[in-house]
Each structure stands twice: as C-alpha cells, then as structure tokens.
Design a protein around this nucleic acid. Structure first.
Lengths: 335, 335
DNA sequence: ATGAAAGCGCTAACAA
DNA sequence: TTGTTAGCGCTTTCAT
C-alpha cells in the first residue's frame, strides 16, 4: 500500500501556477477566468485526477446536492425502499447517500435525531427517515418520514394503507367462506400494527362476525415471537379455520407451525400475510399476502423531499399508498 | 418550516460558558477536563441535543469510523450486497455509508475513481467498490472491489466462482442427457461473463461434447439483448435441447421466447440461468439456476476492508466464493 | 484545567 | 482576470 496522498485543490493550484481560488472557479464554472487559464487548469486537473472533496465543499457551500436516506439497518425493507428512492432521484441531479450506523446505537431511541444532526446542515440537503421511532426531530431541515412508528402531524410522511390492506386480507378470507378467523398481531408500539388490527376488526364487524379474543395473539412482526402465538392459536380447545398474520414473517411461521401440528395448508387452515417480501413467494405453499408497495414508498418519499428542498408546496403532507391482495396458494375455502 | 439553525459546538460552548476546545474534549472524552466542567458541558449538550457534525469532524480527524460502499446505482445486486455488508459491520464500531450518484455520470467511465476521490481521505476510512469498470483507481486508501469488470492483481477483490458455477450448470444439463446445448453469453467486457463462458466450454469438452458455435449467442446480461439471441438460438435450422444463459435475466427471456415459439419448458427445452435473483423463483416454470452468494460477497468484502483498515494482512487478496446449483422446474431430460 | 489559535479542503467576498 | 482573505465546524497542539 503506497501512501499516495489525496490530490487537493492546492496541488492543482501549485501545478498550474495559479491560486486555489482560480482552481475553485474553474471547477465550479464561475465567470471571470481567462479561457487560456481555464484550459491549463483543466489540463492539470485531468492529469492529476483531481476531484473536489464532497466533505470540504459541503462544509462551505449551502447546497450540497446530496440527499440522505437514514435507516436503522440495511434489511429487506430499507433496501427495497432504496431501489424506489434511486429511481426518484435519477435525473434530478441529486446524489443519494444511504446512512446506517450498522445496527449499533439502535438500542437507545433517538437514532434518527442523532443521524440527522450528524449529517444535516452539512453533507445533505434533506433526508428520508425510514421507520423512525421518534418523529419529533426538533430540526428544520427538509425531512420526510417513511412508515413512522407513530403518526405525527407536523412531519410529512409516506405510509401504505395498512388498515385497508388488512381489510382486504380479512375480506378475502371471509369471501372464501371462513367465519372462524384468527389474528396474529404485530408490534403494538408501531402505528402500522395498530392499523392492521383495526382493519381486521373492521372487516369482521362489517361481515357481522365476532372476533374471538382468544384467537387474537401477539406476534411482534417476528418469527420467534410468532411461534408461540401460532401455537396458542392452533392448539386451543377450538381453532380458527383461517389466520390473518400482521406480516409475512409471522404468516410463514404460522404455516410452519400448522404443518408441524399435522394441519394441511390451505386445506385445514388458510393463512394470509402482509408485506409481500420475496420470501412469501418462495415458501410452500406460496403465501397469499397483501402487497405493500415498498419501492413506491421510497419513490414518493424522495419525490416529496425534492419538492420541499425546492421550496415548493406539497400536494399532500401525508401520503398513504394503496395495498393490494396477492393471491397465492395458502388460502382456500374452509373444509 | 421554522428556521432552527443547527446546534454547533459554539452554541454549546457559549451556553456552558467554556471554550469550544473544552467542549470538544468533553465530547471526545479527552483528559484534562475537571469533572465538574465535564458534567456541566454534558448537561448543556443533552439540553441542546447537540451532536457533532460528521463532516466537520471528518475533515479534521484522520480516522472517521465510517466505511463507504460505492455503487453505480441501487439495484437488486447492490442492495443485496448491502445486506451482507451491514451484517459484517455490525459490532465493528464502524458506520456504513452507501453512496450512489443516482445513475448519473455512469455513462462516462471512471465513476469509481471520482466517487473515491470525493469521499476518501475525508468522510470514509475505506471503501467497497461494487462492480467497478476501472479497477486501477490510482489511490491508496483501503479499497476492496466486488465483482470487478476485469481482474486486477493489485486490488483486493471478492468474486463468486463464475467458472465453476457455469461448469455446474452445464454439467447439470449434460447429466440430464442433453448433448445439444446452447449458450447465451453475457457482457463480453465483464470478467464474470468470460468466466461463465469458459466454464461452459470446459464442461462441454470434459464430456467430450462439441460446442456448436451457432448456438453461442451474445446476450449482454439484459432481457432486450437476450431476446434476439434467444430467437437465433431457437429458430435456426437445428436447435439445441437445452440452453445455459449467462444470467437469470436472459434465461427468463429465453423461456419467454421459447414459449412464444410454441416450445414447452422444460419438455422441449431446458433452461438454466445464473445469479439466483428473486425473479428466478417467481417465473413460470421456476428457473433452475446457479446461486451466486451476493450477501456473502458483501460480508466478505467489508470483512477484508476492516482488516486492511486495521493494518492487518489479508488471508487472501482475491476471494472467490462458491456457487451452487438450485434446481427448479426449468430443466428436464431431453424428449 | 482551560483557552487561543492554527488548520483540515474548500468557497465566496472583496481587493488588486 | 487574478489573488487575498475569511470563514464553514471541528480537533489539536501549545500556551497560560
């Protein structure tokens, strides 16, 4: 490893025999530089392979031309969102920085505020916060929150229509003829989980069905937590003929548990999930689920952010994207 | 939108009635500060919600504690890689910045060098370059390239075993009884495409089979370019009973073309792909493919980078990860 | 134990 | 047209 120092503006200035200011002007295409000088400086820049430091430039200039996506971790949800964000930023002239503290520091709340303080004002012109727990960031940079844990009227947000999705899921089961439907809930501290439960209950009451509270179990959006819940759901004195799980992970776990109990899916038990992650299509039987348009959420969030940065007014500060039923093999009429 | 200015170290110093130097010492846990002062300053920091600017800090300090993943765009490959990278960085104390120019600037080559120059030396301590076209970056910061377009002995790289994977794919077809096997090639400027073709030829000659050069068509790793190639492969005077496509996208396109020609897959034509992207499992029939461990590549790349940054020697500068056959529905013995 | 001051690489007034 | 100068927010000697 040789120790080739970074090429700075000083190196270019020295080599070209001009001042750093002149180089800066050339780099930024400012007026007031003789074309012969511009040419010479540009030649040196090319020779040396100089590129201005984002960091140094950003510290001085007000606009940085970079927008940040702040995530707690790079997992399926956030990376899916990134794809949509990338599409939105394309040909906008902006660059994208996705920032993650690598899972560390997530235990203590407020990571979103810390990230924002560390990056905003410098480096980025605005940020998309992915699933922030604290939405009151007490900071005025343009910010859009995606799938926040709890609603907040003051900050622009993008969510998917969790309640309507849950309604669709439950109505699908009801239309198949199910009456005994269980619900495997999500993380109760999350807005999305509450909406999904609300949608479930709404569909049930709309159909004149009673929710059996023994068949409502906490699943936490996780496979491990969903496991005992699924057992409770399926091993009681009576069991539902169908289960709507608040997300795909717990739905898949429900299928696993059902099979281990000798139940056939979907013959003995129908299962519906929520999110439509790739794993839903791959499990056996393939999961009937509610598609949450994650990429689209990323796209819209960046779109809103760009409007805010540009000083334009938002059409809507709270965007709720439609969900849709994706019917696969895990649901059928009750036996 | 209120205009709450960012809280700087000066604000803290002023509020606490000390100098910025003292605040800096407290923030960084340096010696030489009275515990009473530390306490008072810390109180103000908490009150004001101060967090030091990554940019400013990074400009001054040699180590930044951040590593960069430089990608041309956020698409399925790079985002998958990100997940593995995130796993590797966890509990390393490092943070992760994924940087993308949003697709712009990709037309002209050398984006990797420009990105590196913009970020390195400041902001990041080292970088993972994803599918760089130019591997000679003429810069000495710790860098690891993943899936580079062309091999380079001087830079640490992580690739998957493209040749062996192609060998596996072709041998799978041969073991099913196929003798007339076509090859839909990838982007010829990419190292990976060359290795895949080499693996194909190796398997053929190993089995004593001749490669029909009419059945070797350029596919470019893209659906659009694969389309005419698949037509050429399947509409000639004679046609192969099986096709190995250099990646999944072109394999899926081959299936589409075959069906449009009235061929049944896998009864009339067997197809194997390479990469194992999610779409491979979802198409009909599900694609038999070679699994490229993308997440693992990201994990290993970051692992190597952390070793380099830590000044440790690498076990191996060129890592090649094993691939494996994933048998699904698109292959069967010839009719 | 504390603070003044220099400077990281760059941009932007302002002078020359 | 060009160069000088003053910072951006922070860390780090080096005085005090």
């Amino acid at each position: 490893m040789t120790t080739a120092r970074r090429v700075t503006i000083h190196d270019v200035a020295f080599a070209a025999g001009v001042s750093v200011a002149t180089v800066s002007k050339v780099v930024n295409g400012r007026y007031g530089v003789a074309s012969s000088t511009t040419e010479r400086v540009q030649g040196v820049i090319d020779d040396l392979g100089y590129e201005s430091s984002l960091v140094a430039r950003t510290l001085r200039a007000r606009r940085t031309g970079v927008i940040g996506i702040l995530v707690a971790d790079f997992e399926p949800f956030s990376t899916e969102l990134l794809k949509g964000a990338a599409r939105a930023v394309r040909s906008s002239g902006y660059e994208l920085v996705a920032y993650s503290a690598g899972g560390s520091g997530l235990e203590q709340p407020g990571w979103e505020r810390r990230y924002l303080n560390r990056l905003s004002g410098t480096l980025i012109d605005g940020a998309v916060l992915v699933t922030p727990t604290v939405v009151d960031v007490g900071y005025s940079a343009p910010v859009v929150a995606v799938d926040p844990h709890t609603g907040h009227p003051d900050m622009p947000t993008v969510v998917s229509d969790n309640q309507d999705g849950a309604l669709l899921a439950t109505e699908h089961l009801i239309s198949l003829g199910h009456r005994d439907i269980g619900f495997l809930a999500g993380r109760s501290d999350l807005e999305s989980a509450q909406r999904r439960e609300a949608g479930f209950r709404q569909a049930m009451s709309k159909a004149g069905l009673t929710v059996n509270e023994h068949w409502v179990q906490p699943g936490d959006y996780e496979a491990e937590r969903a496991d005992p819940a699924a057992h409770a759901l399926l091993e009681g004195p009576t069991r539902p003929t169908a289960v709507f799980a608040a997300n795909d992970l717990s739905a898949i776990q429900t299928i696993t548990v059902a099979r281990s109990l000798g139940l056939r899916v979907p013959l003995d038990l129908s299962v519906v999930g929520f999110d439509n992650i790739p794993e839903s299509a791959l499990c056996d039987p393939a999961l009937t689920t509610i598609d949450q348009p994650i990429q689209e959420m990323g796209f819209q969030a960046v779109h809103m952010l760009l409007e805010l940065i540009g000083g334009r007014a938002l059409d809507a500060t709270h965007l709720s994207l439609p969900t849709a039923l994706v019917q696969r093999g895990s649901t059928a009429p009750p036996a």
